[in-house]
């Protein structure tokens, strides 16, 4: 594995391999006074976030530090157009500096693919060049526009596996703004790869045209689906969706698609509730549901660090291991 750009790059075996590694790393850290493994000592991980993010950026940074990598946060803002250096030049520059891994979040779908292309091409032609023999830069997609967020899907899968003991054959609902959600895209394809039955519940305006080709089913009313779900993932609905005529009002969304306490009671007892955060309490999810025992929201965050450690390990140490 050279890059992690899309969950569609992963087959079931490699995805499970990542989850298993995450589990092993989690065990290795348990009970340690100093949470530090030497695995990636001397490796440089650069995080480049062109969009605001707290949990994902910090999660990657912590993951790198716990593996003894040198992690560097580059504050990036705005798009590359008209605001200084192009994304192409940034990718080539970071590769030339000797970054072993670039973790990138960008508002443009496909930005991570392009960064991987530029880093590779420049290494191949020698125009900028790698820093040493066999050296090369890996790119991790930490969220590209409305396309994908692969490590989020991996941490969601890890959480579901922890709570339910497995993923294959489980029915998992994804509820909300699927159209604009990179979390939904990555989850649909990864969970399907892992053998889950995925059900989408969303207003028709927030489902992409072409969703019929996805490896999932578009479900009926939320009430009708909840009793059959082993896990339900609530997506964030951004306030600006009320303006583009996607939805009549936040109130109506909460009434039709929110996970209220009454609705949560329709879930089977073993079912787990997930949310990628940040949560809009009261609209997508009732506060009591978010904080209930069935809620895995904070477990997701914890698993995020271990999954990202596993990704960095497979990318940066995988070839040598």
């Amino acid at each position: 594995m050279r890059h992690l750009l899309s969950v569609t790059d992963l087959d079931a075996a490699s995805a499970i391999g990542l989850l298993d590694t995450a589990d092993r790393l989690k065990q290795a850290l348990l009970g340690r006074e100093v949470r530090k493994l030497p695995t990636l000592r001397g490796r440089t991980v650069v995080t480049m976030f062109y969009e605001n993010s707290t949990r994902t950026r910090v999660s990657f940074e912590v993951a790198g530090k716990w593996m003894s990598a040198d992690t560097i946060n580059v504050a990036a803002s705005g798009s590359s157009v008209g605001k200084g250096e192009s994304l192409r030049d940034t990718a080539a520059t970071l590769a030339a500096i000797g970054a072993d891994c670039i973790v990138v979040r960008h508002p443009a779908s496909g930005a991570a693919h392009r960064m991987a292309h530029w880093a590779e091409r420049d290494a191949a032609t020698g125009a900028v060049g790698p820093t040493g023999p066999g050296s090369s830069t890996s790119v991790v997609n930490a969220g590209d526009g409305t396309h994908e967020h692969p490590t989020q899907a991996l941490l969601d899968a890890a959480t579901v596996r922890d709570r339910l003991g497995g993923i294959a054959g489980r029915r998992i609902g994804i509820v909300g703004d699927v159209l604009h959600s990179r979390v939904a895209r990555s989850n649909v394809f990864l969970l399907a790869t892992l053998g889950a039955e995925v059900v989408l519940v969303a207003p028709p305006t927030l489902l992409p045209v072409g969703v019929a080709a996805w490896p999932c089913r578009v479900g009926d009313a939320l009430e009708d689906e909840l009793p059959g779900l082993d896990a339900v993932m609530m997506l964030r609905v951004q306030a600006e969706r009320m303006h583009g005529a996607f939805l009549p009002s936040a109130r109506e969304y909460a009434v039709r698609y929110g996970l209220s306490e009454r609705r949560a009671a329709l879930l089977p007892d073993h079912a787990v509730v997930l949310h990628p955060g940040p949560m809009v309490r009261g609209m997508e999810i009732a506060p009591a549901v978010a904080d209930a025992a069935s809620s895995a929201v904070l477990a997701q965050v914890q698993n995020g660090v271990h999954v990202r450690m596993a990704v960095l390990y497979h990318l940066l140490a995988g070839a040598a291991a």
Binding site: S109, G110, T146, H147, R182, G210
Partner: peptide, 18 residues
């Protein structure tokens, strides 16, 4: 809009041109 509104744009997360 960034791409033809359909199966490919849906997966790639590109806003559709209907």
């Amino acid at each position: 809009a960034q791409a033809h509104e359909g199966v490919v744009a849906a997966q790639l997360g590109l806003a559709g041109w209907p």
